[in-house]
Each structure stands twice: as C-alpha cells, then as structure tokens.
Amino acid sequence: MTDASRPLLTVDHLTMRFGGLVAIDDVSFDAHPSEITAIIGPNGAGKTTVFNCLTGFYKPTEGMLTLNRGKRSFLLERMEGHDIAGHAGIARTFQNIRLFSAMSVLENLLVAQHRSLMAASAGSFAGLFGLPSYRHAHRTAIDKAKGWLDRVGLTHRADEDAGNLPYGDQRRLEIARAMCSDPVLLCLDEPAAGLNPRETQGLNELIVGIRKDFGTGILLIEHDMSVVMQISDHVIVLDYGRKISDGTPDQVRADPAVIRAYLGEEDEDTAVTANAAAGP
C-alpha cells in the first residue's frame, strides 16, 4: 500500500431498488486495509444486499463502488461478478454456507485457486499432458491449501466430503476457501451464525489472525455482538436500507439512533444495559 490513508474500499451513495422496494438507500462508507469493518443492523436492513452489490451478484441501481488494490482502482459496479473476485480480489462467504458439498475439503480449497492453476495449466493442455510447469503449480496449490487446513484445523478431514463436516467446520472451511483465492478484501456474511460460544471464540481468533498475517481488509456482517464489539475496528449500522451510524464500536454503542433502531423508542438506560450485556 503506497498511501496508507487511501481506503481499500469506498462505497459512495449506493442505492439498490427492487421494483418499488428500496433495499439500500444512499449508503456511503469506507473500509481500510488490515481493518475489520462490521456492518450491523436489524434483519432486513439491507446488509447482505450491500455484499451482493459489492461482489457483483446485483448491479446497484445507483452509486459508485471503488476498490483500491495497490496502485490500481476498480470500479466494481461495472465489473462482472467473477472478475470482481478474480481481478479486484474480493472474496466472500455466504449466510447459508455454500460449499461444494460433494467435493472433498481439499478440493474445495483447490477450486478457490482456479485462476492461478488454470493459468499454469495453459488452458488445460499442459495439465492434460502432465507437463512439469503444471505439476509444480499443482504442488504449490496443495501446499497452500495445506497451510489453510492447518490454520482452520481440518487437516485430518482433508479427504472427506465437505458436506459431511459439522456445521462449525463448514463455516471455517468456507472462510479458508475464500482466503485461498488471495483476496485483498474478505466479506464474511454472518460467520458466527449457529456457532456455540467456544466456536465463536475460535472464529474471532481466525479472523483476527487473517488480518494480522495477510493484511486483508475484512468486511463483516454479524448479529453476534460479542464478535462485532470484540474484534471490529469500525462499525457501520444500517436500518431500513439507510446508514444510521458509523464509528468505532464504542461510539456506535453509545449512539442513540442505534439504540432506537435495535430496541425501539424505549428508556435509554435499559437499552444501554442491554447493549453492555451483549458486549464483551
């Protein structure tokens, strides 16, 4: 990164409409490299829609999405979904886990390295005839996958079908798979959903470790406040498609607008206690 102050991702006046429904209404925010940015908000606030716009599954109705990777800038709203992942370097996980369930754990991680392996296999011909250049690339890819398997603790299950893993393992595998595509920005859609407290703790460590070791910027949608408040550097709160708050976890926690959105128009002290209880 040449310019440390330059944000990794700039979301500028993003609006997404489905027919008459406004799912996201003029939302702007930044995310920085090596930072964990959390997007929170009640159900239906438009969080996942933001992700879908970022990763090219939806074309935003209005707004500009810029990703700065090194010296290059990518205008995401003009790119095809696979190029966003491949060129701009945004990887994501899904709310309802999307693994290749009939393929093995290791294969899942190899598919994530498709682009680099495909280049090495020279349009499959080098691979078909088993040329050394491809064999080398293949071995490198397996080593990288091994590294991630160690990190998420799945090395012993590498050859099992991904669909047969327990839920928590599937969540971690999905993160590992996303990371195998060498992203600069990792979007995690509710990674702690359905995990028990111990697994959630492990997940926190995994996410923090990714940021520390790879400098990846992380965008996180989460309902579990123990995750959000503990690990994020920056929190954005959406409600009914609008951004209602933006700041550090402590600032957001104290923001009356946020308290109202979460608890309705109630006494402030109950809200604060509830929030404090949910905090670390």
């Binding site: 992942a85 899904f94 999307r98 190899l110 682009r115 296999s121």
Partner: peptide, 28 residues
C-alpha cells in the same frame, strides 16, 4: 485426466454450487 485438472474441478464445483463458483472468480 481432466477431472483432476483445474477445469474439471471447476466443472464439478459448478455442478455443486455455481453461485459459490462465481464468488471465487470462476467465469461460469
């Protein structure tokens, strides 16, 4: 042979979940 190449794996991945494929930079 092709099943063990990236393209073959991408085919199978496509069969399993094409949305996830796109999110990994595979041109479906």
């Amino acid at each position: 042979r092709v099943r063990r190449l990236p393209i073959g794996r991408a085919w199978e991945a496509l069969r399993e979940d094409d949305v996830a494929c796109q999110s990994l930079g595979i041109n479906r």
